[in-house]
Design a protein around this nucleic acid. Structure first.
Length: 212
DNA sequence: CACCAGGCAAGTA
DNA sequence: TACTTGCATGGT
């Protein structure tokens, strides 16, 4: 009889309830990375507008985005909000890709995961969630992405303390689950799905939470 | 009208 | 270390 694993049990319940979420919606890894920066504290719907904008203008490539002036880039990403800030952050990230890997994402992906995570965190505008989203959803690395939904749900179910740090929450997942990218991918997406369907403020379904 | 959304960095004490 | 604030559009 193995030790009880609450986190895996929760995952199984969520998967049975909602099924596969198919994250991250994108055509390629670079698109995921750009989206990860654009969606910081911003609804995915608004980010979709920008991604569509860039695709329509055939600009969603490293070289083409690099050529744009910060002002021009800012104007293109306007619907995602914080457009001046994010234009600068994108520029920093593009420069990081060019300098560190000559723009080659396969070289980037060949780095040891934790070393790459450290390097991403040194890029201005990339914090822990964005770094981990890039690692997991763009490069398929087995790192767990923690976001405000994750904390809200796990705090409500008393599985973490209210002042738990990002790393503490992440460590809870990573010591409780096998390090499989597909599992981490689906789990995080399911938590977001749960939050949106049941846990948002003023949502009457909140009382019918599948987790009890 | 207010509030929120798949955060982060810089400033303050 | 632990708060606080600025950043900004678009949907509900």
């Amino acid at each position: 009889m193995g030790k009880k694993n609450n986190l895996l049990t929760i995952y199984k319940r969520l998967f049975l309830c909602f099924g596969q979420q198919r994250w991250w919606p994108a055509d390629n890894a670079f698109e995921v990375m750009v989206g990860a920066i654009l969606t910081q504290n911003t609804s995915w719907r608004n980010v979709e507008k920008v991604i569509g904008n860039l695709k329509k203008n055939n600009l969603l490539e490293l070289k083409k985005l690099s050529r744009l002036s910060p002002k021009k880039l800012a104007s293109l990403i306007k619907p995602a909000g914080y457009y001046n800030l994010k234009a600068g952050r994108l520029k920093c990230f593009l420069e990081f890709l060019r300098k560190s890997y000559a723009g080659n994402l396969k070289k980037m992906s060949a780095e040891p995961m934790l070393k790459l995570r450290q390097k991403l965190l040194e890029v201005k505008g990339i914090g822990p969630e964005t770094a981990d989203s890039i690692l997991l959803y763009a490069l398929n690395k087995p790192i767990f992405v923690v976001d405000s939904y994750t904390k809200r749900i796990f705090l409500r179910h008393k599985l973490i303390q209210k002042d738990a740090s990002y790393e503490q929450v992440q460590n809870l997942f990573m010591r409780s689950l096998k390090p499989r990218a597909q599992l981490f991918n689906e789990y995080h997406a399911l938590l977001v799905r749960l939050a949106k369907d049941y846990c948002l403020k003023n949502n009457p379904k909140c009382r019918e939470c599948p987790l009890g």
